[in-house]
Design a protein around this nucleic acid. Structure first.
Lengths: 337, 337
DNA sequence: GCGGATATTTGAATCGTTTCATTGGTACGA
DNA sequence: TCGTACCAATGAAACGATTCAAATATCCGC
């Protein structure tokens, strides 16, 4: 048994026509119970597996959806992927996953590959500005939904999270626990997420006349960058320390926490409250469990598939941009002073 | 322009035969410069994209390889995936990625999907025992390479990492820095990786007559599990503390580190040396940068693709089990006492 | 300008499905 | 017994590429 069995082999083995085998597979109701059983038995005996290439060729479209993310290692995307897979499987389609790794070349490779595969549509968290490329896709009839990026609704559908609202939420929480001398840690500000979160924080601070917000620009969004900001704060001495710190992501916050707790001059949350962003797994297991802002990743993935399905089914070119609001997760690091 | 252009459209537009267009795509040398230009121009003007389903149907096999991992969020697998993708692209194939999430059902879905897609072969980091299923695949002519699992060479090729050697490496390093009262933290011991690493550590300790190894079983492999082991050690008091701790992964080690440094009764590495396993990103940015054992993930991914390619090209059923040796990464946490 | 060798191009056959118009059977009421 | 529905099953056409034997063009030396 060298070659894998074809539908014709099954038909012969069950003494029926190929069309009947196809019907058993795709429209079981059209086939009588008796022949159905006979065909299924033959399928089983020959170990027949449908050749998706042939099916797709005839059908004109595939049952797969392409998903290109910036980094599969990033828990944010991992969760989005998982949700998208689950949502797609409900529709009977599967997700082909591509990891661009923030590299435009890899991204382009995946776009090409998925186009050759004739995916039903594409979900993409784009590297930089690829709108021209995506315009081309749209023209060629490949529906596309942007993920984690707000799109011009006249051209694409998109799902994204409101970073301004997240920033507001974080700062408002610090204010609500009685802090007034706030600091924002993040950088570089050229990153849209950073500037949006800062903007939201500023909006919250303006609501309290006696509150101030200091901006501490970090060099990147890593633990080490957070630690150097933290060290700088420690050197300032207690009297000049903010009493509430909002970090643009959890890694930064963990770094700041390391600096502050290592010296044992300051206590979290008694002297300084600390809140991060993303709610990574490590947040809960930090030395002082870290309050954070959680992004609704499951909803992102699920909705992305839904929007795509809408576009596939209705040919009209109306797009929707769905924006989600993140959620505050309170832990010990922002407990009462 | 509703339907995407086919090779026939291109042929008409360029006034050549379809065979010629195919040759331009697949055997450019067989085509004269003049016609090649004409055809390429037509391809460009029509926005032609090859239909992979048709190609595959005729060719009998695809240019894709299936890769099913236990958890794309795990940095170990992320790195393997990345390396496999790069290695595959050298061979002109692409990787279809599936995430089983340790779920046998999802795994089965992906196996079915990939089989319908007629992937060239399958790389899989299996959930539990799926050897019967994989045997079926093999019978049907889908070459399979096991990833991160040692396989019976009579049945499959595999790539894996020698956890015993890794455990030896870690314990030997602690011994080499003068520690003698060692402790191993990990659990549950039913996990093969845990028991293998412990075994390697025991082997190293036996080499030093005056050295001892205490086994501290943890409840899981998380930061919190590590912290509770750490707290237990702190309560013992300084005189009963080990002077070198080997944790079965970095998360455990970070938890232990949190406990020991929080109390400030013990210093790392002066009082206790600490080494983890996996060399996750967080290891380098821990409060005390953590020594660890790094697994050669790039080599795993690359070699997996190579073994698969071997199986695809040579029909003979000889398999190879390649075992890699991990690597010691020394950082501050195991500095001299 | 010719014969032969080589380089290009042609187009029909083929892969394994799905689709659908057609055929063959069966049941039922008149 | 006939006619009418209805239900199952049939099998040829179609999808869009690749392949390959055959046809044609080009080149070379004499």
């Amino acid at each position: 048994m060298n070659r894998t069995a074809s539908i014709k082999d099954v038909a012969n083995h069950a003494s029926v026509a190929v069309g009947t085998v196809s019907n058993v597979l795709n429209y079981p109701d059209r086939v009588s119970q008796r022949t159905k059983e006979r065909v299924l038995k033959a399928i089983d005996e020959l170990g027949f597996v449908r050749n998706d290439a042939a099916r797709q060729l005839r059908a004109g479209h595939s049952r797969t959806v392409g998903l290109i993310v910036l980094d599969v290692g990033n828990p944010f995307f991992t969760s989005v992927v998982r949700a998208a897979e689950d949502a797609a499987s409900v529709h009977g389609s599967a997700v082909l996953l591509g990891d661009s790794g923030h590299d435009a070349g890899r991204e382009a490779n995946y776009i090409d590959l998925f186009q050759e595969q004739r995916v039903q549509g594409l979900l993409i968290s784009p590297v930089g500005d690829v709108t021209e490329r995506l315009d081309l896709l749209r023209e060629r009839g490949v529906p596309t939904v942007l993920v984690d990026r707000l799109a011009d609704e006249s051209r694409f559908s998109s799902v994204s999270v409101d970073d301004d609202a997240g920033g507001y939420l974080a700062a408002r929480h610090l204010l609500d626990t009685g802090r007034r001398r706030l600091a924002f840690v993040g950088g570089p500000t050229s990153i849209r997420q950073v500037s949006d979160r800062l903007q939201g924080a500023q909006r919250a601070v303006k609501e309290e006349p006696d509150a101030t917000l200091e901006v501490l620009t970090s060099e990147g969004m890593t633990v080490l960058a957070g630690r150097s900001v933290g060290n700088m704060l420690v050197e300032r001495g207690p009297e000049h320390l903010p009493d509430g710190i909002f970090c643009a992501n959890d890694l930064l916050a963990l770094g700041v926490m390391q600096s502050l707790t290592m010296t044992h001059t300051f206590r979290i949350p008694e002297d300084v409250a600390l809140i991060g962003y993303d709610d990574i797994d490590f947040a809960v297991s930090a030395v002082v469990p870290l309050s954070s802002i959680r992004q609704p990743t499951e909803a992102l993935g699920r909705t992305a598939i839904e929007l795509l399905t809408e576009e596939v089914e209705s040919q009209n070119a109306t797009h929707r941009a769905v924006v989600f609001t993140p959620e505050l997760v309170v832990r010990q690091s922002t407990g009462k002073a």
